[in-house]
Design a protein around this nucleic acid. Structure first.
Lengths: 406, 406
DNA sequence: TCTCTTTGTCGGCCTTTCCGACAACTAGA
DNA sequence: TCTAGTTGTCGGAAAGGCCGACAAAGAGA
């Protein structure tokens, strides 16, 4: 087989199903012509550099209804990170068709892509060449092994987000038996410059063709707190930070100005775990704002457990829930809820958006929060505190199960 | 960079300059609309299987003038071997434009490709991963090394004939210092299934872009004699023979019949070292046939030294030189010359074509046979005896120098 | 809390490949 | 024939990578 081809230097358009699987099943892609709200305040949170100076016009419009005129699913040609570019036209909300694609929705997609993500352990990323394949991944994504063979082994041919083809030897061995990727894995790790804490996503489409994507872990300094259990404790050569995924303050100012003036504009969104989306489906926002968030209201929110790959539903109590009446953004609903979480780990994520939480019912939690509704909360499953610092990562195993703790 | 891509299964069209460098600088590509002679007798020599039975029509036309209507420079998708497909229309010779492309011609091509071929030693092909780079190759083809570094080292990015990209680490080290390819080389050898005796061709175009091609050594049983100094003495797993490059007797019969009837036809020619071309520029043939080859005429011919990569010019004396007056091909000029070579190694290549030799002058040999005229003899630099058996390989170093021995 | 399953990590060992040393060979004087 | 330069081959050494063993962590009872 021929050797590596030089990667195309330009940004690459990605199949939206592959894109969604790479971004994580919790990310939603707005559909063209749907109605959304753009929150310049949330946009500013994700900018890098000094806090931008915004005009009074922008500050007077904390949420701007828009029609989505186009959606580009893209991948960074250098890092393989997926991101999305939204083309938005400010508009008065009207009841046009308003829907989000939803990979976990009730409507079964015949072209559905199954996927599985795993955070790389140090053994996966650093040691001489192996990847421990979780059983569920081997069973649900990889082609069936011949377990009569000794040892059972196969070669996987997998396409990455740039169209590059990789081969991995998949073997089932050891005592106790486990699935491993050996030959070819090390090359992939080195080529993609993966380190412990990054994730890989294995995907399989309806034809059995396999794909692989990567998700970079958050870097130190880019978000608050240590972003993963395997992240290097200090940045001794492990920091790869480059500001990617952050827009400059200047760009945000320009975008917010255009939006406030009613001019068409574009925004780029990197589906980083822990980043709160600043373009949200109008329906969802309105539902959140129609609720009177009295102090003492019990709420729940789906997040990642810090030391786990599973999604967990935390509960808390609303302390206050009124529109901002001070600071630059008077009347803004952005992070209007102040919540006291039952879980002490969440103490520094007390300010959230109303559409990120759901009122906790007294019904059994499992049934009031079925798996099929996971996506309802997924787009805001990352949290940030009032300073926009990220508190914990969404490590995003796509096989994550939703469970609400008592 | 992305990993191996599966090779395209179809035959690949190749840039004619790359093609020429891979085939060896001694091979000429006829140009479209040029006049050539087709020799069915030479075509038969290269067929495999039983000797085909030819009609009296074919036998009565040992050389057929044709116009070249199209030329396809191609590469075998499996072996990377280059070959050429000629589309020929039988015609009476007329003085149309008649020229051959000539890479070594006097006219300097601004897009010229420089190339260097080397026969793989066992160390190059078998051992763990190294390739000894001849100094001339490193100096003339590779980008300049920084000899201040210790050791001087660079990574070469090289495109193969299928468009696949390979990387080789090029290092200058050891005592005494020499150029080596290390990392990446072994993968290339394994991928291309190269063995000692095969050749690789390094090329560089005017933009500095590098290419690599392979030339398979002749296999035992496919040609006469041992075809190389490093070829395995017996076929213990080393034989890769598959008849490739040989047409079946049936195909040759069909082609020859069409040609004799004046119908357009196609021929495929593999530029294997040692194979005599059976489609020859008309001008060259006519010049050869216009000479009266009296017994005793001293002639010289450029061939490969058996134990060397250099081209050498051998001398001999014509014993007889008349058109065939017996056998099936009455009146054929094919291999009409019987020569007694000064060099005993050539004893079993006594029958050659008139256009393969040149009358030896008494002038100093070097000056009567300048480098610029090498190509004049290049298309017949391989030899075959009366049975069409190949006597010695044209190992084809493209930097070969021409020297006539005393 | 106990047990069973899953999977992260380690040291051992085998394979690959990188290296300088040496010697064979060639070209030129 | 001699000499200087080039390059093929070898064995040692280092690195890479595959392996089972063990144990830690997690899930379910």
């Amino acid at each position: 087989m021929p050797p590596p081809r030089p990667p195309a230097a330009e940004v690459r358009h990605v199949d939206s199903r592959i894109w969604r699987a790479c971004a994580g099943s919790s990310v939603q892609i707005p559909t063209v012509n749907s109605i959304v709200y753009y929150f310049p305040q949330g946009h500013v949170e994700q900018s890098c550099g000094s806090t931008p100076l915004l005009s009074s016009l922008v500050l007077s419009r904390p949420l701007i209804p828009c029609v989505v005129s186009d959606v580009h699913c893209l991948a960074d040609p250098r890092t393989d990170e997926v991101f999305i570019k939204l083309f938005l036209v400010p508009d008065e909300p009207s009841r046009l068709p308003n829907q989000f694609l939803d990979v976990n929705g009730e409507v079964e997609d015949p072209d559905k892509i199954v996927s599985f993500a795993k955070i790389l352990t140090p053994s996966d990323a650093n040691n001489g060449g192996g990847f421990s394949v979780p059983r569920f991944c081997a069973d649900s994504i990889f082609p069936p092994l011949d377990y009569n063979a000794d040892p059972p082994v196969q070669t996987l041919t997998v396409t990455d987000i740039r169209g590059g083809v990789w081969e991995f030897r998949h073997i089932y061995r050891g005592t106790p038996r486990r699935h491993l990727l050996t030959t070819g894995w090390n090359k992939f790790v080195n080529q993609k410059k993966l380190i412990a804490g990054d994730s890989v996503v294995f995907m399989r489409d309806c034809n059995g063709k396999m794909f692989i994507g990567v998700r970079r872990a958050l870097k130190r300094g880019e978000g608050g707190g240590d972003s993963g259990r395997w992240r290097e404790p200090t940045g001794g050569g492990a920091t790869k930070g480059d500001g990617r995924g952050r827009m400059t303050a200047e760009v945000v100012v320009e975008v917010a100005e255009r939006a406030a003036k009613g001019l068409p504009f574009e925004v780029v969104y990197y589906p980083r775990p822990g980043w709160t989306d600043f373009v949200v489906r109008a329906e969802l926002v309105e539902a959140g704002l129609n609720i009177y968030w009295a102090g003492g209201t019990r709420v729940k929110m789906a997040v990642e457990k810090e030391d786990s790959s599973r999604m967990t539903c935390f509960q808390g109590t609303v302390i206050s829930g009124a529109l901002s009446d001070s600071g630059p953004w008077i009347g803004s609903p952005w992070r209007m809820l102040l919540v006291a979480w039952d879980e002490p780990d969440l103490e520094n994520v007390r300010r959230v958006n109303p559409w990120q939480v759901e009122i906790a019912t007294s019904l059994p939690l499992q049934s009031s929060f079925p798996l099929a509704k996971k996506s309802k909360f997924s787009q805001e499953s990352g949290l940030a505190d009032a300073e926009g610092e990220i508190m914990f990562p969404m490590t995003g195993l796509t096989n994550s199960t939703m469970r609400c703790q008592k």
